[in-house]
Design a protein around this nucleic acid. Structure first.
Lengths: 343, 343
DNA sequence: CTGAAAGCGCTTACAG
DNA sequence: CTGAAAGCGCTTACAG
């Protein structure tokens, strides 16, 4: 087959000796509304199909000012937590006629700035963003420019935006209270070296719970960007240097993986030698021996809220809707890894 | 701050009393090449920055016919295998000035058709596609329309496209040979009900290896779209009904997860009661007790080949490069789950 | 019921 | 060294 160029609306119009107006109306399903004769409509539709017409959305969006695309930035799409959220959001958005373009920030400030710039350049209609520390100015600018925007997983208390996040403080409290109830005495918290609100709230929840029970803090921070084996090694050392620790609470699911590797390599038994609770669920935690207790995020609920709030704002046009700032309560999913000495 | 509209190139030109031509040249870094005075360039750059100018890529792409976007369709971005590939491809593409828009086909024909249509409508420059069965016609059309395209993970033998895939036949052979070497007698293969080349090659590799060793086939097919607990149940039943099976080879990583759940719930010990090998690695398999032997795909190499071949084709313009059809050799990563009776 | 024409925001060949 | 103008492929207010 010779490589002929696909026709555009004007090509079809010329070929069929009618106006582009009619072609456009017909192709957009407005034939009836515009009272175009059935035969004409049929002829155009057939021609378009036979010649492989595909809408040029670049041109369409440029003209209409609407791209029907939502930009979604998560921390890391390879993390099952974010992957699931993204999947649910996409499903929901597709039903409403929106496409989702997603990408990962890698918790990197420059990359996030770049991604937001790309989205703005491509004229996406709305944004769902897991923000990284340091980009307050960008978000602020977007708000001032009246971008349709909702933050997710974390937020900037100083900026007036919509957001949906977990009540992380409460999650940590539930985890620590449970460990103490089970008789664990010296509970460590493993987190990353980061100022993000969600990690900060988890840390505060831990500290506050320990303070209530008058227990000593054991806090270990590792660097987000370090490779897994380096983090594992650091956690090994941390546990060896603090033999009195009898339970560990991991601040994120990937820290949990590195931590389990460390615990395994030290030959410690869970929960006999050391109790374990982790933030965010994973297949791995469910199937691990023993199964790992987790602070679970209600993923369906969160993604539903996220997309619905954004869509409402998209529908509202230039009118400004009241802000929606939601903190969702987590659920402690108790498994064997945290059943303690009292048992 | 009042919500003033962001300026376009013509706005800047008008405001500064110069021509859009000059503004365009300056903003695109061609000031020097076009010998525009330094002062003018500086003035324009400053104005653009102060007023938050952002390129409208819709307009730019429409005019230049180039979007600098690559569309990537994988089976499921939540599967760590695809997530890792996507991440590596993205990194590589970004360095060359391309953005990646990715999405999941969910192994669904209609969804894949829709996604390809969206990509074509948005005028992406190139495509990396994990095809699902049944879309031969779409791929064929794309080839005829001279789309820059590379298939991944699976391919259509009848269509002349570039592709990078694993030598799945060889992977199955390695797995089965290893199990037999370890003394396992009755080896089952768990796969999905699908005509895709990769699953077909895995099945053929399994059958061929068993035939060589004159062993009986135990093949169980489950449905890709069934929920995990249904698949788990089916596998449970399959194993209960075929007590002579002493080793299982899972055709994909998610089947491995469901299978381990089934095995655990039956109280079978690995590898004493049943040996296990799985296609594709996971954190879970590394950390599971016992660690699970896997047929590993060389992810870095595959993603590098994929993006490089596509970029070469993108650079070649309308010239047609020779096809590249690569089958990459997998690596058997032996862990404890398959150390057999001879031990 | 149908069409001519302007315009979305860019780029670029051409002219001076 | 700088600018006027056409055109990428669409949509839509307006006219008939």
């Amino acid at each position: 087959m010779i490589n002929k160029k696909r026709p555009g609306i004007t090509d079809i119009a010329k070929e069929l000796n009618i106006s582009p107006t009619s072609v456009s109306f017909i192709l957009n399903g407005k034939a009836e509304e515009k009272r175009i004769t059935k035969e004409l409509a049929k002829k155009v539709l057939k021609y378009a199909k036979d010649h492989g017409y595909v809408t040029n959305y670049l041109a369409k969006s440029l003209r209409t000012g609407k791209s029907n695309v939502i930009g979604l930035i998560v921390e890391n799409i390879a993390n099952p937590f974010f992957a699931q959220i993204a999947g649910l959001i996409e499903e929901n958005a597709n039903q409403k006629g929106y496409k989702i373009f997603y990408c990962s920030s890698g918790n990197d400030e420059d990359k996030t700035r770049e991604l937001i710039k790309v989205f703005r350049e491509r004229q996406v209609d709305g944004y769902i963003i897991t923000p990284v520390a340091g980009i307050e100015d960008v978000i602020e600018t977007m708000v001032n420019d009246n971008c349709k925007l909702i933050l997710f997983d974390r937020y900037f208390p100083s900026i007036k935006t919509n957001y949906v996040a977990l009540d992380n403080f409460n999650g940590s409290q539930q985890a620590v209270d449970h460990l103490i109830e089970q008789g664990f005495k010296n509970i460590a918290f493993i987190t990353i070296d980061s100022e993000q609100t969600q990690m900060d709230a988890r840390l505060k929840g831990y500290k506050d719970a320990l303070a209530r029970h008058k227990r000593k803090n054991y806090i270990k921070k590792v660097s987000y960007n370090d490779p897994a084996d380096k983090i594992t090694k650091e956690l090994r050392t941390f546990l060896k240097d603090n033999k009195e620790i009898d339970a560990v609470f991991f601040g994120t699911n990937y820290l949990g993986i590195d931590g389990l590797t460390a615990i395994k390599s030290l030959g410690l038994r869970i929960p006999e030698d050391i109790g374990v609770v982790c933030f965010d669920d994973l297949e791995l935690f469910r199937l691990y021996t023993p199964a790992i207790t987790v602070v679970d995020q209600p993923i369906e609920k969160m993604s539903e809220k996220l997309i619905n709030i954004l869509l409402e704002n998209l529908d509202s046009g230039s009118e400004n809707l009241p802000l929606q700032q939601l903190l969702i309560k987590p659920h402690l999913n108790i498994r064997n890894s945290s059943l303690g000495l009292l048992k």
